[in-house]
């Protein structure tokens, strides 16, 4: 299966700033791929490069296994940073232009506006829209061409919680229809909830790339507590398999190696005569991963 997007050794420098640094990425068909990174990490620049907005990078990229061209871009629906449309035109007219460029029929326009809940404002001029509406129109524009790939650059930017939830549902629905989605975000729980794969970026470099499941499985955390934390702590010192012990309130938070299960710790402590009052497995969230990886 040819990958939908293949990026090889992509580098882009703006003056002294290396925005993207030797980036390699592979997106397969059907992935919901999250590009995760703090602001300024190169997400938008990377997307800009593969969409032919930002020019002259070194390295290369392939869309659908072919050399990039404006024709392959017709199969892609994308939003990039803030949405820009003709302020004096209505939503419908703006989308007509998009449809014409993509050489796709007009009949999807009304549908798409209903999907993003802008149907009631479709004849109003773009300049009368709030930021949330502009964002939703951008998504509508990305969808109007019936794309095979959807690229969303921080789609929930500027939306209220209701809007964010709506977008999340929309993305999940679209993902279920088999579209490939590339999502750039600095919001961790967003990526965790919507994406199947993730690449973490910092200052233009990829720090981690793989499935979200993979990212979640590293180094589980086991919480333990007993009546005497000092004793507990001493007792655990000899346990091979604990990477780190941290005190959190009246809990000891143990970062353990992957093979260690709570039962292992329980058995070990029972043999030593230490009784636990609390024992639980805490699945590491992407947030902690993220912060850890960034501090590394």
């Amino acid at each position: 299966m040819t990958p939908v997007l293949q990026i090889s050794n992509l580098t882009k420098t703006f003056g002294r700033l290396k925005a993207v640094d030797d980036l390699n990425l592979l997106v397969e068909k059907g992935n919901v791929f999250g590009l995760l990174g703090p602001n300024g990490s190169g997400k938008t620049t990377t997307l800009g490069i593969v969409l032919d907005i930002i020019k002259t990078p070194t390295g290369s990229y392939l869309w659908f296994g072919e050399e990039p061209s404006h024709i392959s871009r017709k199969r892609i629906g994308a939003t990039l940073e803030t949405p820009f449309f003709y302020p004096y035109l209505s939503a419908v007219n703006n989308l007509r232009i998009v449809a014409r460029i993509k050489e796709k029929p007009f009949k999807r326009i009304e549908n798409v506006l209903k999907i993003v809940d802008l149907h009631h404002r479709m004849d109003d001029k773009f300049r009368t829209y709030s930021l949330g509406m502009k964002q939703r129109l951008a998504i509508a524009a990305a969808l109007v061409g019936d794309p095979e790939v959807l690229i969303l650059d921080e789609p929930t930017n500027g939306l209220d919680p209701l809007g964010i939830a709506e977008i999340r549902n929309l993305v999940n629905r679209i993902a279920n229809e088999g579209l490939t989605i590339i999502l750039a975000s600095h919001m961790l729980d967003e990526v965790q909830k919507m994406c199947s794969h993730v690449a973490v970026l910092r200052t233009g470099r990829i720090l981690f790339s793989g499935s979200v499941a993979e990212a979640l499985n590293e180094n589980d955390i086991i919480e333990v507590s007993s009546n005497n934390l000092e004793l507990l702590s001493l007792g655990l010192k000899n346990f091979d398999g604990i990477i780190e012990i941290r005190k959190e309130g009246n809990l000891l938070v143990l970062k353990v190696k992957n093979e260690i299960k709570p039962t292992d710790i329980n058995e070990f402590l029972i043999e030593k005569g230490i009784v636990l009052s609390h024992l639980s497995l805490r699945k590491k969230t992407l947030e902690q991963q993220f912060i850890e990886v960034l501090q590394a």
Partner: peptide, 17 residues
């Protein structure tokens, strides 16, 4: 000024077009 030149290219117009 509207930066719609970016939108046009993004949607699949080549710069030559």
């Amino acid at each position: 000024s509207f930066l719609t030149v970016r939108t046009n290219i993004l949607n699949g117009m080549s710069r030559g077009e």
